[in-house]
Write a protein that binds this DNA or RNA. Structure first.
Lengths: 208, 208
DNA sequence: GTCTATATAACGATAGAC
DNA sequence: GTCTATCGTTATATAGAC
């Protein structure tokens, strides 16, 4: 896959991957066209097959990269050894921040996983991604100490991720219905970087 | 002998629409194949073109129906003249319930709107769908009365819908990662029909 | 209305010159 | 490595018999 020759600047392979990332993330595997990717990369269609044998392998490169961008960061932050509420605040801020910079990423990943669950499972477990038990311990300990309400860790985790991810995936819908500009929606998302954490902590906290 | 034409009131057009709904919702516009829809309907491919001129018009029929299923119910429930907290409880229970019965619906609609925002906007406003001001009044009045925290109505609405919709869209992801069966995931969703409302009300309520 | 057969276009992939 | 030209397949869509 990688050029065997000496290192080159602004390699064609990188151009292809950049173009493929853009097109696949927007149009999906079924909707993307090899010609379109070639045009976006500013090179010829045959080059795509030279570097990546076929469409499926090119997609696989983009998809696995996307999975690698969207899941490990969750695992990483949830593994910090800091107080639960701090962890939630950092997670929400960081995660919304990342998704805001890659607005097509979550929709792309969700859709393609729905389309090919098996391909995802391989990728997920082969890369050794594993959701951290420490976060569940955090929650259970906080419940025991009477700091938060009784709630299943998975229930809380899904709530947190839902509040971060959904507004990115539903961006065209909300933008359309409320006739918001790109800037206005980004301002909305920036507010959420803080307010969502408040929303969650308010909900589970027992100290008032 | 009676004419056998009238006896066949199973309706070919309905068969086609049912098949198209199933295939399009799962595979999307780009991924669906006319042949696959014909097979699913148990009829010939040419019939699809006889009743619906082309793929795009067949898709349009499915898509507009889907939009009509997913938005008006929101508007309807949010228009009830009942106390805010009751409204939230009913909304969450009803909406998750509907989506649970149509698990591919929200992902399909979100994805296709992202893909063709303009087509959606026409549909949305042509059908006169409009988000109810009464719900925003509910929220602002509750804030004034000191019943809930200060929160932008749109912020709260997005939170509510996120908590209902996301777990449906992310079903294959969560199911895969946690190795849950279909039944286990449905149990999870049924729990959410009540717990999500608690989560929201806990978060915004000022009375404790 | 429903079918079979076929036209027409689009797409992924390859061959071969340079 | 990069290009042009083209092959083979598949997909949408139409024609025409019944």
């Amino acid at each position: 896959m990688v050029s065997q020759n000496k290192q080159r600047e602004a390699g064609t392979e990188a151009k292809i991957l950049n173009a493929a990332r853009k097109i696949f993330q927007i149009k999906g595997l079924a909707g993307a066209r090899m010609q379109e990717i070639a045009d976006e990369a500013g090179i010829n269609k045959a080059m795509l097959h030279y570097y990546y044998r076929n469409k499926d392998q090119l997609f696989q490169a983009v998809f696995s990269e996307a999975v690698g961008r969207i899941f490990p960061i969750i695992v990483q932050i949830l593994s910090y050894e800091i107080p639960l509420f701090d962890k939630i605040r950092i997670f929400v801020k960081e995660y919304i921040g990342i998704l805001k910079e890659n607005p097509y990423l979550p929709g792309f990943v969700l859709n393609e996983i729905t389309q090919h669950p098996d391909k995802f499972m391989e990728l997920f477990f082969d890369n050794g991604i594993e959701f951290p038990k420490i976060f569940y311990d955090d929650i259970n300990k906080a419940i025991e100490k009477g700091e938060i309400i009784e709630i299943e860790p998975l229930m809380l985790l899904v709530n947190i991720i839902a509040l971060c991810v959904f507004p990115i995936v539903a961006k065209p819908v909300v933008k359309g219905i409320y006739n918001l500009t790109e800037d206005e929606y980004n301002t909305f998302l920036e507010k959420r970087e803080y307010e969502v954490a408040d929303f969650i902590i308010n909900s589970i906290s027992l100290k008032k």
